[in-house]
Design a protein around this nucleic acid. Structure first.
Lengths: 123, 123
DNA sequence: CAGGATCCGGTAAGATACTG
DNA sequence: CAGTATCTTACCGGATCCTG
């Protein structure tokens, strides 16, 4: 009687790939910050906090590559670059936020399980 | 007029931490396989496909540590170990599946964006 | 201001061999 | 069967310095 949805290997890989992008160290933070509207590089850097400029650059490049953000350069002096979520990026935000809400709601349970496991492994 | 939900730094970190666990290379595959019911080690290994026994072991240990799966040892010969999702694990499956569905639905758009970006970067 | 270039350390990930 | 132990490789993430 189980629903038994297929688990097509190919699909699972695609899901896994997307989750790996989303799950890398900074992506979610950056995307959720951009959820409030376009931001400049250093503005983003400061808002996220604790990210190096290198990692912010690579994170943004990857997001741009996958079509989640647009990069707009204003050829002024000093230069100015705006990053903004695309439609795809905003759509991504929905399931990610859902997972985020779940995480917030259950982080205590996870931490408790972790503490119990570590305590049990102590012996 | 934006909703402007808070982005409490602490919360975002927790979310990010959970996403990193969920987003590591094999976790989603393993959890989704276990979504159909308990499985043994090698059964899981074969079902996932392409995972080394070492990575499967560490993935399962981490999932056990965080309270997502239980590990049941039958002291028979040959030994038998069943892995099964906990309640927490099954709850996790819901938002993860939602993200998975989104990923399946949009993988083409992502790949297209990627191809376009790479083609543009060619010059 | 926004980043490119470079170096370095830590850890993830795989292959292989061995064990209860 | 279900791991553990060990080794090697690869890449991630950070720090620092430099440029238009």
């Amino acid at each position: 009687m189980k629903p038994r949805h297929p688990h097509r290997s190919e699909d699972c890989r695609a899901v896994s790939a997307v989750l790996q992008r989303v799950g890398d160290k900074w992506t979610v933070l950056v995307v959720s910050m951009l959820g409030d509207g376009p931001m400049r590089f250093n503005e983003l850097r400061h808002a996220v906090g604790g990210i190096s400029q290198k990692m912010l650059t690579t994170t943004l490049r990857n997001l741009e590559r996958d079509g989640f953000v647009t990069r707009t350069v204003f050829p002024t002096i000093p230069p100015r670059v705006d990053y903004e979520l695309t439609g795809l990026g905003r759509e991504l935000l929905t399931p990610v936020m859902a997972l985020g809400d779940w995480a917030r709601a259950n982080i205590d349970r996870i931490n408790n399980a972790r503490d119990r496991f570590d305590a049990a492994a102590q012996s």
